[in-house]
């Protein structure tokens, strides 16, 4: 099995305070991996380092064996990292279709001007096709021409997934997909995620507080606290580990 995404000894300091301490993790092709830990454990920081939102001074981030540590966000995206956001980030003033079309185009930048002149700015046939496919996959068929302001939070989150799928990612980073959703919505979201992951076969790195979602969705997990990787392994084992109890209940770890 090949490694899609890896961090090698990534450390991160904020004005002298250590947020990440030599974190090394790997995500294999098609694998669903969880990243868990209490508030302030450094999960978001690690996410931002992988995505390039924060610069990494110590350590390396690799994608498909290539060192991407110093690439800007949009280059990483084109190379195959997709993501969703905890507080959904959609493009205002746009329809669902617009979101998918621009994500598709951003990754195929050639001859944009020529195409624009030929189509007068309308989506091209292959873009319509690709976006229809993704919308169907996510059960958003009827919403293609809706402005995003009319979507529910759950639909918005699915649209983020759809948008990232248009770039054909090798690995998708899901940032707290359940936040702001209730139990029922979370369950529905999890079901959809499982389906599309099976269909498209991308790898997933999931940051999530909802233990249930992590347990049902991931096969393997990393536990992070105070910027250290405490333990890793099959999700069930991590959940039952003494480190997990310590991290979540605040008892001192007996090493």
């Amino acid at each position: 099995m090949s490694t899609v995404l890896a961090t090698r000894g990534v450390s991160k300091y904020f004005s002298g305070i250590m947020a990440l301490d030599r974190v090394t993790l790997e995500v294999n092709a098609g694998e669903r991996v969880g990243l868990i830990g209490p508030n302030g454990a450094g999960k978001t920081t690690l996410f931002n380092c992988i995505l390039g939102v924060l610069p990494v001074e110590v350590g390396e981030v690799e994608l498909n064996g290539e060192d991407i540590t110093s690439l800007p966000v949009h280059h990483r995206a084109r190379k195959g990292i997709g993501r969703t956001f905890q507080q959904i980030e959609l493009f205002a003033d746009s329809t669902v279709r617009d979101h998918l079309v621009i994500a598709y185009r951003a990754n195929r930048p050639r001859w944009a001007v020529v195409h624009d002149l030929l189509t007068l700015g309308r989506p091209r046939p292959e873009e319509m096709e690709a976006s229809d496919d993704v919308l169907e996959l996510l059960g958003l068929q009827g919403l293609a021409d809706e402005p995003v302001e009319r979507l529910s939070l759950g639909q918005g989150r699915l649209l983020e997934v759809a948008r990232t799928l248009m770039t054909n990612p090798d690995v998708v980073l899901l940032d707290e997909p359940s936040s702001g959703l209730d139990r029922r919505e979370t369950a529905a979201l999890a079901e959809t995620l499982v389906e599309i992951q099976a269909e498209r076969g991308f790898a997933v790195l999931l940051v999530e507080h909802d233990i249930e979602l992590v347990s049902s969705f991931t096969t393997r997990s990393y536990l992070l606290d105070f910027g250290h990787l405490l333990t890793s392994g099959p999700t069930e084992e991590v959940m039952a580990s003494p480190e997990m109890r310590a991290a979540y209940l605040g008892t001192a770890v007996v090493a």
Partner: peptide
């Protein structure tokens, strides 16, 4: 035409959410 074309779409995406636009591969 410019605003409906590729660059216009990119700019609108950037205006809507810069971080989301970059994370689908748009160079601001």
């Amino acid at each position: 035409l410019f605003s409906r074309g590729t660059t216009g779409r990119k700019l609108r995406a950037l205006g809507g959410s810069e971080i989301a636009a970059r994370s689908v591969g748009i160079s601001p």
